[in-house]
Computed example of a mutant assay.
Amino acid sequence: MLTTVFHLLAKARHARALHPRGVQTTGELTGTPPFPATAAVTVRLSKGAGTGPGKPDVLGIALRVPTESGDWDLLLSSTGTGRRTRLLPKFVRHWHDARLGTLAPYRYRGELLWFMAVPDGGEPPTRFTLHVSGKDAAWRQVATVTLHPGDRTAAPVAFDPVLNRPPEMELAPSWLAALREQAYEGSRRGRHVS
């Protein structure tokens, strides 16, 4: 049923079911594990419902990070930062007010990890710091991403965290991972993406 809902939504929008419109560019990532030391990344900034400028929405950043075991599509949306509030989307008007997190954790080496991107003060931002936390929601910085806002020549990327992730980055919990798989399958079908 979830597959059908997301299929119909993507078909009606002629775009992704969520975060239908965005600005794609490139950037440079500098990080520590689980991120590579340095990498050229593809970045997309978007709004969840696609509301107009200055109107509240769930902001999003998608990163395609090359790793030794394949591309990793890391998708983050504006959320809270506390132990419970990081599980909930948060509507914001401006990038400088946003903290963008993974609503659901990854299981990495037996530990549950949440990721968060903090933008600089720009509108739109040109730099993000990436942070990680475990169950305790104590955030520590693990990477920076510097955007190349003038580089809009990259071919459009269909970011997909279900299909594009290193095998050691397991979507968790398993019941939610199954729902996400259905939602992304429906969105892919609606956009006619193989």
Rank of each mutant, 00 (worst) to 15 (best):
S46R: 04
E111L: 08
H96F: 09
P105A: 11
G22Y: 08
E28N: 02
V41S: 03
L9F: 01
E123R: 11
L171A: 09
D97R: 12
T144W: 04
S194M: 04
A158I: 06
P36E: 13
F91M: 12
E181H: 12
A154C: 05
Y184A: 00
F91E: 03
A177I: 12
T32S: 15
S69D: 14
E181N: 08
H192P: 00
P125Y: 09
V41W: 04
I61T: 05
G27W: 07
H7D: 09
L63E: 13
T85S: 15
E168H: 15
S77H: 09
R16T: 05
T79K: 04
L75C: 13
T38N: 06
K55A: 11
W139L: 08
L2Q: 10
L63Q: 12
T81N: 08
P166Y: 10
L113F: 02
P124S: 06
G27S: 04
G27Y: 07
G70T: 03
L113K: 10
V92F: 03
W114L: 03
G80Y: 07
A183L: 10
E123T: 07
R127P: 01
R191K: 02
E111C: 00
V58W: 02
T126Y: 04
M116K: 11
G52F: 01
M169N: 02
T38C: 04
L2E: 11
A40L: 02
L18E: 07
T81Y: 06
R44G: 00
R13P: 01
A17F: 11
A158G: 00
T51G: 01
G101M: 08
R21E: 12
L112Q: 13
P33E: 13
S69M: 07
L29N: 03
W95R: 10
L88Y: 06
A154T: 14
A143F: 10
Y108R: 12
T126K: 11
L88A: 14
R109S: 06
H192Y: 00
V41N: 05
V23H: 05
F115L: 13
K90E: 04
F6W: 13
E111F: 01
G110I: 03
Y184K: 01
G134R: 14
A137T: 03
T153N: 14
R86M: 05
T153I: 04
P53L: 05
R99Q: 14
W72C: 08
V193I: 11
F115K: 07
R165C: 06
G50R: 10
E123S: 14
P161I: 14
V65W: 13
S174W: 13
L63M: 09
D57A: 04
A183S: 10
Q141A: 15
V23E: 09
R16L: 09
G70N: 04
E170P: 00
P105Y: 06
G150E: 14
A12H: 06
E123D: 15
P124G: 06
S187C: 01
A17E: 09
A172R: 05
G122V: 08
G134P: 01
L45C: 02
T153D: 15
R16G: 04
V92R: 11
H131P: 00
S194G: 10
T85A: 14
R107V: 02
S194E: 15
R109L: 13
H14A: 14
H96G: 01
R64Q: 15
